[in-house]
Design a protein around this nucleic acid. Structure first.
Lengths: 241, 241
DNA sequence: ATCTTGTATTTCGCTTGGCGAAATTCTATT
DNA sequence: AATAGAATTTCGCCAAGCGAAATACAAGAT
């Protein structure tokens, strides 16, 4: 009774993608040895895989032979973002929202059983919620998670309350230091994403919420007005299982 | 003397990445059959490869079984973008630049023998230069290409002129309908990228250039001032050969 | 209800792609 | 020159993964 884990997929591809996973904020350039250490792969394997990755533009090698991410990642990512057919002013809206409230404004979309931070704008302020674009978070806790679930077709349960009040508020649910307030952005009756304001928990009390909620709602309405009509028919993807 | 093309890299990886290439503006959701047609791969191969791609988040299947790009693409892309350590206000700067001039403002970086449009902001105007973020263009023609080459270490030749005048202007070099004006953004003496304004060729005559060049230069200076000091040591990547 | 057509998924035996230890070459540093 | 650390190439063995074909599923049409 050795291994019961079901192996599926294509090994070589798993490994190649694992190489890309080696990069992160702190490591934007990695030598062959670094990559080998981080990925646990044999150097010759890495070299072989890298040929394919480089050819396709996902990876690059600079002057010194260091590996770096390639431009294709950004291109593909942009394509993914465009999938949601968001109005191009959305970013500007987030920015004004962030400036007028002094908190981090972000836009989340649902992807299967996760939520993705598609866009984000931070205020210029010492203490603020630092949030990286692109991060994938669980759909379990947090104001945006609640909104995304409450307004998704299918999913429902006791989230009816949120659906009627039209917003969600959470204090320290996912991260004990963070408070957040989220409202849905709808195209007709279909959910597009969640518009969220978040910051240090102590700044998010009931009084403050009462103060910023109207701003948030008004912004959401403004965004919805600018959504192009053709519905991309995205529909919540199936759980990645 | 059959085939002389040198085969290298890992076949399975090439194929998996080829799957991702099947998606584009017009095709954000593809059925298995579509994918097979576009990629030329066997359906069972696609299914097998897709398991790995889905597991890693590069691909997704929606309710109807259609394939879509997954969130990891955006995450990786954002990581690539952050590699350049650009000030977060850069986007806002582009926006004001675009608004005050009425043309498309963009920021290009060099990546090997190509230039990548990292960020872009378009004006709200009937006729404008539509440019997609993430696109990779040759380093041959266009104002931004000239700037990127003129200010890269190593590369030089007769581009000295551009280096001394501090900007490049091009009319219809790459695309016959487009005119563009570009200036470098420098961190110390090292090139970070090119700041560019582009639009329909007829709006880009000498008089106009004289008018917008100062705005562009001033914007570049403002951006440079906000660049965080630690140089990421990017260095032009080697040609993809 | 029964065909029909298009699409998706699973099976399975054969073969070739690709694995990785070790040898080799490159490039600093002392 | 000598040493060491990193990058690259070689090559024989074997299982990973290929794909044709069979099967299952879904949606109209009759």
């Amino acid at each position: 009774m050795a291994e019961q884990i079901q192996k599926q997929g294509v090994e070589a591809v798993d490994r190649a993608l694992a190489l890309l996973d080696c990069f992160d904020e702190g490591a934007s350039a990695l030598g062959l040895a670094d990559l080998a250490r981080r990925s646990g792969l044999n150097k010759s394997t890495i070299l072989r895989l890298s040929i394919s990755l480089i050819r396709a533009g996902y990876l690059n090698r600079d002057n010194r032979g260091q590996f770096r991410l390639g431009p294709r990642t950004w291109q593909l990512g942009s394509l993914y973002r465009d999938t949601f057919r968001l109005p191009m002013e959305l970013r500007a809206q987030l920015r004004t929202l962030s400036q007028s409230t002094g908190e981090t404004a972000s836009f989340y979309v649902r992807d299967g059983q996760r939520r993705i931070c598609l866009l984000r704008e931070e205020p210029i302020r010492a203490i603020r919620h630092a949030l990286k674009e692109g991060v994938s978070l669980p759909l379990k806790d947090g104001a945006s998670a609640l909104v995304l679930r409450a307004f998704s077709s299918g999913d429902d349960a006791e989230l009816g309350a949120i659906r009627t009040q039209g917003y969600a508020f959470s204090r320290g649910a996912r991260d004990p230091d963070v408070g957040s307030l989220a409202v849905p952005v709808l195209r007709g009756h279909k959910l597009v994403g969640a518009l969220t304001l978040s910051g240090p928990i102590n700044r998010f009390d009931d009084a403050r919420v009462a103060q910023i909620l109207p701003v948030l709602l008004e912004c959401s309405a403004r965004i919805a007005k600018n959504l192009v009509l053709p519905d991309p028919e995205i529909g919540a993807a199936l759980p990645i299982a």
